[in-house]
Design a protein around this nucleic acid. Structure first.
Lengths: 338, 338
DNA sequence: TTGAAAGCGATACCAG
DNA sequence: CTGGTATCGCTTTCAA
């Protein structure tokens, strides 16, 4: 930057103003500086800028790279940010190294804002972090006064799915969900709401709930198979998200069954769900749009100066596909023909 | 950091040495400083560190978020980096904003090293960048003296696929690939090698090649349908990667056909490829292991001080699944029964 | 082994 | 409107 200032015959301060588009400098000067910049091929050091002002980067934390839904959010955020001068910086977690430490890392990196998918982080801790840096939390239903949240109505979404299955005549509907990391009634994660909605509706219909908690990835297939073997009366599985649903479909297919035997529905509408070979009935919460909106909300704080929390909720929509079918009449699975 | 120094009653310099594990300081002092650090909950600013020393972050550039294979590389790199003190920072491109500008952005961010999937960036430009910062280029077969490359033997992989199809009796094999961005014979991207291998083998067998270049995403399905309608003698499609292959499968399924009518093979072995509902025959180049290896290669330069280029090649393996089947004997598609 | 002081590359305030 | 200067938080000589 010194070089540029010298080449243009001006002070560093003025150069700084030019690259920041700051207020108060003559067009002549701006022109001179800009020529010097392009001639020298000068690029400001983001690290140095970050120390004083802003780093022009938005951090995005995700728990892992196994869930395709996150990719959609990433894509939405990326496209929204394209050409804005800001760069999206994705910090994926891995195993134990996720949640809090990754968020800390982003904060240490002095990003200008954070989009977080952090179902397990404590609200108090986030409140603290959010005092220093704008945060949009995706998926969680706790309402902080410091950080923004962007959710979909998980209760409504789950209801759409369960009622869809009921409409198809299913009465023995299992719910496949992930294990909860901690007892944390304050950070209301999406899976909890879906589970609750499931239980509520089944209770209302006088049906017995059947919940399977999966842990690791292999566990999903194993658990599903165990479920179907133990209780052949199950004719439908409501999976807590599409990744779980796709593993459930794997289990069912490997057992030689099809959607005619067991219906499966998921949540998120990941890309492969609409593929004709998979054709998964699911709920879309418009992941890409969520990514875009999260960026917008962040920018309102960063550039617009908003300071009060915003809590946005997207209305989920049902996508009926081939993986959910009417319950087979007359021929219970447990009594094979012949 | 000043606070820590004061609290421990030492100089900033010594604190700096402690957090860097530097050589030459008494255990007593280290202890004192460490207590002060934990007591104050001090975290060094990465931005400030980046300005003088290293930023403890590895940048990864990918052209877009649509290709699942990239996710595998990301996952491998992430797991390799977990607990190392370094953080992976993913900078996805989007449309025109990809390649060069994204790499520049990472460089401006003074990351300590870059993993790049950049099929279209000019070798000269990369040479320049690589003079300042360690780079591992994934997938490209040009051999620079400045940057490292990590590839698989695309020629061998493509050969495995085409010969597999020939073994199944296919003689009319089309190749579905992406459009090339530029005439750039120097930056030898993977798709080009796969295409060449395909053409070579077909020529050797005295068969006529049939190459379809797809552009946008919708285009893939459309092009595939057009291909199969125009030339019903095609019984097999070799797609340049799994994402293309999966779209080809979509087209085929939507046309009411199955693998019995048209075999499809892909490249990369993305996660969904092994799903029983998709069951895509493909080549694995061990994307996760590639991510890990890329990190290792980078670390050799960053910590180990290696300065000469390394060019690593992974041996691809065939994964035969249900999407490739023997050519149907006797009943040409063009002459329906009855 | 430790401390003091000089940068690194920007921003921001305050005179001129 | 422009230039000088302190400053941000850390690393890195260089003496002591």
């Amino acid at each position: 930057m010194d070089d540029v200032a010298k080449a243009a015959g001006v002070s560093k301060g003025s150069v700084s103003k030019v690259i920041r588009n700051a207020y108060g400098l003559s067009p002549a000067m701006r022109k001179r500086v800009e020529t010097a910049i392009t001639e020298l091929g000068y690029r400001p050091s983001i690290a140095a800028r970050a120390m004083r002002g802003s780093s022009f980067s938005i951090g995005m934390e995700i728990p892992n790279l196994d869930i395709d839904f996150f990719t959609q959010i990433m894509a939405g955020a990326t496209s929204r940010l394209a050409g804005s001068g800001y760069q999206l910086v994705i910090a994926p977690g891995h195993g134990e190294m996720s949640g809090t430490p990754v968020l800390e890392n982003l904060a240490d990196r002095s990003v200008d804002g954070i989009i977080a998918v952090a179902p397990d982080v404590s609200p108090e801790w986030l409140e603290d972090l959010a005092r220093d840096i704008p945060i949009v939390l995706i998926g969680r239903h706790d309402h902080s006064t410091n950080y923004d949240t962007l959710t979909n109505d998980d209760e409504a979404g789950a209801a759409l799915l369960v009622e869809h299955l009921l409409d198809l005549g299913h009465t023995r509907i299992a719910h496949l969900t992930i294990r909860m990391k901690d007892e944390r009634p304050d950070a209301i994660p999406p899976h909890e709401m879906r589970l609750t909605a499931y239980e509520t509706i089944l209770a209302r219909e006088g049906l017995e709930p059947l919940v399977v908690h999966a842990h690791a990835k292999d566990d999903i297939v194993r658990s599903t198979k165990a479920l179907l073997r133990t209780d052949p009366s199950v004719t439908a599985i409501f999976a807590g998200n599409d990744s779980l649903a796709i593993e459930a479909l794997r289990a069912i297919t490997e057992m030689g069954m099809t959607a005619d035997d067991v219906s499966v529905v998921g949540y998120d509408d990941v890309r492969i769900a609409s593929h004709p070979l998979v054709s998964l009935t699911t709920i879309t919460q418009f992941g890409d749009r969520m990514g875009e909106t999260a960026i917008d909300m962040l920018m309102e704080r960063i550039r617009g100066g908003r300071t009060t929390a915003r809590h946005e909720e997207i209305r989920p929509e049902l996508r009926v596909r081939g993986s959910s079918r009417p319950v087979r009449a007359g021929v219970p699975v447990s009594i094979p023909i012949r």
